[in-house]
Simulated assay, not measured.
Amino acid sequence: MFSGVIGNCILDFFVSMGMVIGGSLLGGLSAIITHHNPFSTMNSLSDDLKIWALAAALGGTMDTLRVIHRGVFDFSFMPMARTFVYLVAAFIGCQVGYVIIQWIIGGEK
């Protein structure tokens, strides 16, 4: 149903959000098993995982850098603009995942 730019934006949003939420929740579970504070573990993981989720949602950074390189030096700005839109969608997904984890743990711990 959704294909093209909108479909990729939705996919990038949910992949990055899912990586932050899933990684933080499973890290909190491992903290419980190892007798550490799960809230502080989830807090630090949710912050640390944002950049990795962003890179993973975009499919690795090399393809993104190639598109930007071609856009700048070959004057093809539409692929570069499309990549920027995907980057913004993935960034918003990371931030939403971070906010959800903060809500779950009750704020900064």
Rank of each mutant, 00 (worst) to 15 (best):
F2D: 10
G4V: 03
G4R: 00
V5N: 04
V5L: 15
V5P: 01
I6R: 01
I6W: 07
G7W: 05
G7I: 10
N8W: 05
C9I: 12
C9A: 14
I10V: 15
I10N: 10
L11Q: 13
D12C: 13
D12T: 12
F13Y: 14
F13K: 09
F14M: 12
V15S: 08
S16I: 01
S16V: 07
S16L: 04
S16F: 02
S16H: 08
S16K: 10
M17S: 08
G18I: 01
V20R: 05
V20G: 02
I21C: 00
G23A: 06
S24N: 05
S24H: 10
G28W: 06
G28L: 02
G28T: 07
L29C: 08
S30Q: 12
A31P: 14
A31M: 09
I32S: 08
I32C: 09
I32W: 08
I33W: 06
I33D: 03
I33H: 02
T34L: 06
T34E: 12
H35N: 14
H36Q: 12
H36R: 10
F39W: 09
F39R: 15
F39V: 02
S40W: 00
S40T: 11
M42Q: 08
M42V: 00
N43M: 04
N43S: 11
N43D: 14
S44C: 02
S44T: 13
S44I: 03
L45S: 02
S46T: 13
D47L: 11
D47G: 14
K50Q: 15
I51S: 13
I51C: 02
I51M: 09
W52P: 03
W52L: 13
A53R: 05
A53E: 02
A53S: 15
A53V: 03
A53Y: 01
A53G: 15
L54I: 00
L54Q: 07
L54Y: 14
A55G: 13
A56N: 14
A56F: 09
A57P: 12
A57T: 11
A57Q: 11
L58P: 10
L58C: 04
G59A: 00
G59L: 04
G59H: 05
G60L: 01
T61S: 10
T61Q: 07
M62H: 09
D63H: 10
D63P: 05
T64H: 08
T64P: 04
T64S: 10
L65P: 01
L65W: 11
R66G: 08
R66K: 14
V67D: 11
I68P: 02
I68T: 06
